[in-house]
Design a protein around this nucleic acid. Structure first.
Ligand SMILES: [Mn+2]
Ligand SMILES: [Mn+2]
Ligand SMILES: [Zn+2]
Ligand SMILES: [Zn+2]
Lengths: 149, 149
DNA sequence: TATCTTAATGAAAGTCAATCTCAATCAATT
DNA sequence: AATTGATTGAGATTGACTTTCATTAAGATA
């Protein structure tokens, strides 16, 4: 699914205004970068990536702060928590999905399953629980890793 | 579901033997303690709890090492990963289940849903992925917290 | 039982992701 | 342009977890 970046940035600007926050260059740069990044990422990875683009420096602090902000805005999500590491994903324009994680090679497989989603909603209704977000991680061994001896 | 503690400990002892590991007092103490603990827990909580039982000291290092060992043995599982904290559960004698987590009050609600489990297996088959374990966390607001204000 | 081998332990140091502090800077309003 | 207040960067700090290594204890052997 294609996203209109300008439209996204406008929404983000409005979001910042609503929260009495300032529209800074760092924030716009990061949303730009993330929109084009195209894979799951860790924060430290992003810090280095931003640092390698010499045209503008964004500190580690700001990257962490902006990641949190973009989560609240809804543009990114924590999708995998494993070994004290957090893997994020830019989700704008992507339908919701969950993940299979190979514990051997680290490969991440995405899957969409509406039936599971619906059953989750049913469970929440049963417990009068208002779901905000969820994370389903299935850890195991991918087919390629199983082939190797 | 009731578990026979002695039987569990015997299995654990055999498990240790198989791995050429020693049956130590710390290890037996911890499995004893966990079997009677009866709620979700964090490691630090356990460290303190063990420390408060003055009859025997078990160091933080040993608690961490044993937690990992008991995970491999299959007696405990990481069930919630939130805000850089890990919540564990003693699972012997409990049917598999997943969790609703209230982001307001921290309450944890357990639920069992065979349909979701089966659909997960289907997804894994579809991707030729061999699942080892999974974690489904649904974050939201519980009914009590929604009532307030 | 005494002896021997080797794994386990505890205390402290180390690691690493994430957060905090605070002076300097920048956005936005007037 | 001046003012106000949020944001930033650098480095310090936190907190969960791991590692190191000298000492202790399990358990095999005689
Ligand atoms: Mn994904
Ligand atoms: Mn549980
Ligand atoms: Zn793999
Ligand atoms: Zn609640």
């Amino acid at each position: 699914m294609k996203v209109n970046l300008n439209q996204l940035k406008d929404e983000f600007k409005r979001y910042l205004k609503r929260r009495n926050m300032k529209i800074t260059q760092s924030r716009l740069d990061l949303i730009d970068l993330l929109a084009s990044y195209g894979r799951h990422f860790e924060v430290e990875e992003l810090v280095n990536w931003v640092a390698s683009r010499t045209d503008r420096r964004v500190s580690r602090s700001t990257v962490y702060r902006t990641i949190k902000l973009l989560q609240e805005f809804g543009a990114i999500k924590e999708v995998i928590k494993q070994n004290n590491r957090t893997i994020y994903e830019f989700v704008v324009g992507k339908p919701h999905h969950d993940h299979l994680v190979c514990v051997e090679c680290g490969k991440i497989i995405e899957f969409v399953n509406e039936d599971i989603e619906n059953l989750q909603d049913e469970v929440c209704r049963e417990y009068d629980f208002e779901p905000m977000n969820h994370r389903l991680e299935i850890f195991g061994i991918c087919s390629e890793c199983r082939k190797q001896t």
